[in-house]
Computed example of a mutant assay.
Amino acid sequence: MIKFEFIVDGPPVSQQARRRERLRAWKVTVRQEAEKYWSSERQVGIGPILLQITYFYDSVAMDVDNIVKPIQDALIGLAYVDDTQVTDILVRKRDLSGNFRIEYMTSILAEGFSRGNEFLHIVVINNPDQEVLT
Rank of each mutant, 00 (worst) to 15 (best):
I89G: 06
R101H: 10
G77I: 15
E41S: 15
E131F: 11
R19F: 02
L109M: 09
S39V: 08
I89V: 12
L51P: 01
I53W: 02
D65Q: 15
L133K: 07
A74C: 02
V91R: 01
Q130H: 15
G116D: 14
F100P: 07
G98C: 13
R31Y: 13
R18S: 04
L75F: 06
G45F: 06
G116E: 08
N127C: 12
K69N: 01
Y80T: 04
V30S: 11
T87W: 01
L75Q: 01
G112F: 06
F4T: 07
S40V: 05
A34I: 09
G47Q: 11
I46S: 12
V81I: 05
E33Y: 14
E131K: 08
V81E: 05
R101Q: 14
K69E: 03
L78R: 03
N99E: 15
V13S: 00
M105T: 08
P12E: 00
P48I: 10
V8I: 04
I125F: 08
Q72G: 00
E118T: 04
G45A: 05
E21P: 09
A74H: 04
R92N: 10
Y57M: 07
K3V: 13
A61Y: 00
D95L: 14
V60D: 02
S114R: 10
F56C: 01
R115P: 03
L51M: 03
